[in-house]
C-alpha cells in the first residue's frame, strides 16, 4: 500500500464518524418530540378533572411509547453496537426523560416502582450492555428521581382534587425509594445532586400528610378508600 493509498483509506474513517453523529442527532430529536407528547398526556393528571380517567391516560401514553420503540429501534442501527459509550452523551438526556415517563405510567397504573427491566422492555432496549443498546444504570436512576419530584406535585394536587388517600400512599412509596437510594454510595456528581432533591420531595409530601393528619383527613380517607 502506497503512502497515498494509506492516507485515502484513513480519510474514510474520519468522515464516517461525523456522519454517524449526524444520524444519531436526528433520531434523538424525534424521540424528544415524542417524549414531550407523552408528558402532555400525563400532565393532565394534576388537574382536578384529570384524576378520574388515569387509566385512559396511561393507555394513551402506552400507545405513544410505540413510536418511541420504533425510534429506539432505528437508533440502534445508527452506530456500531460496541461503541455505545462513544456516543452516549447524545441520547443520555432523552433516555432519562423516557425512563421518567415510563416510571410515571407504571406508578399511576400499579403504584409500584418500575424496574430497569420493565423500562427496557417499554423502550425496547436491553438491560445488559452485552446484549446490545442498553439503559445505563445511572440514566435509569436519574429517570426515577425525576418521577419522585413529579409525585410530590401529584400529592399536593390530589388534595386540591379532594383525594386525601393518595398523598399517604405516595408518602410510603417515596420513603421506600429514599431508603433505597440511601443504600447507594453515590459519587457521581449530577446524580448525587438529583438525589439531594429527593429529600425536598420527601419533605413536601410529609408536609401534605401532616396537613391532612392534623385535620383528621388522612384517616377518614383510609377507612373510606381502602383501595
Amino acid at each position: 500500500m502506497s503512502v497515498t493509498e494509506m492516507f485515502s483509506y484513513i480519510q474514510g474513517f474520519l468522515s464516517a464518524e461525523q456522519d454517524i453523529r449526524e444520524d444519531i442527532r436526528k433520531v434523538v430529536q424525534i424521540l424528544e418530540q415524542t417524549a414531550r407528547e407523552i408528558l402532555t398526556v400525563l400532565q393532565s393528571v394534576h388537574q382536578p378533572s384529570g384524576f378520574k380517567d388515569i387509566p385512559s391516560k396511561c393507555q394513551k401514553a402506552r400507545e405513544l411509547f410505540c413510536t418511541v420503540r420504533t425510534k429506539t429501534g432505528e437508533l440502534k442501527t445508527k452506530f456500531p453496537a460496541e461503541q455505545y459509550y462513544r456516543y452516549h452523551e447524545h441520547w443520555r438526556f432523552v433516555l432519562q426523560r423516557l425512563t421518567f415517563l415510563a416510571a410515571f405510567v407504571v406508578y399511576l397504573e400499579t403504584e409500584s416502582l418500575v424496574t430497569r427491566e420493565e423500562v427496557a422492555k417499554i423502550l425496547d432496549i436491553e438491560v445488559d450492555r452485552e446484549k446490545g443498546f442498553h439503559l445505563d444504570i445511572e440514566d435509569y436512576l436519574a429517570g426515577v428521581l425525576i418521577m419522585a419530584s413529579e409525585l410530590s406535585r401529584l400529592a399536593v394536587n390530589s388534595v386540591t382534587s379532594g383525594d386525601y388517600g393518595r398523598p399517604l400512599r405516595i408518602s410510603n412509596f417515596i420513603n421506600e425509594l429514599d431508603s433505597g437510594f440511601r443504600l447507594l454510595n453515590l459519587k457521581n456528581d449530577p446524580l448525587r445532586k438529583r438525589y439531594d432533591g429527593l429529600k425536598y420531595d420527601v419533605k413536601k409530601i410529609e408536609e401534605v400528610v401532616y396537613d391532612l393528619s392534623i385535620r383528621g383527613l388522612a384517616k377518614e380517607q383510609e377507612t373510606e378508600g381502602d383501595k
Binding site: 399517604l168 408518602s171 410529609e206 400528610v209 401532616y210 393528619s213 392534623i214 385535620r215 383528621g216 383527613l217 388522612a218 384517616k219 377518614e220
Partner: peptide, 17 residues
C-alpha cells in the same frame, strides 16, 4: 375540627404519620 380525638392521639405519639 370534628376529628379532635384522633389528632390528639397523634400528638401524644410525639410524631406524625
Amino acid at each position: 375540627d370534628v376529628f379532635t380525638s384522633r389528632a390528639a392521639h397523634l400528638e401524644t405519639d410525639d410524631g406524625i404519620a
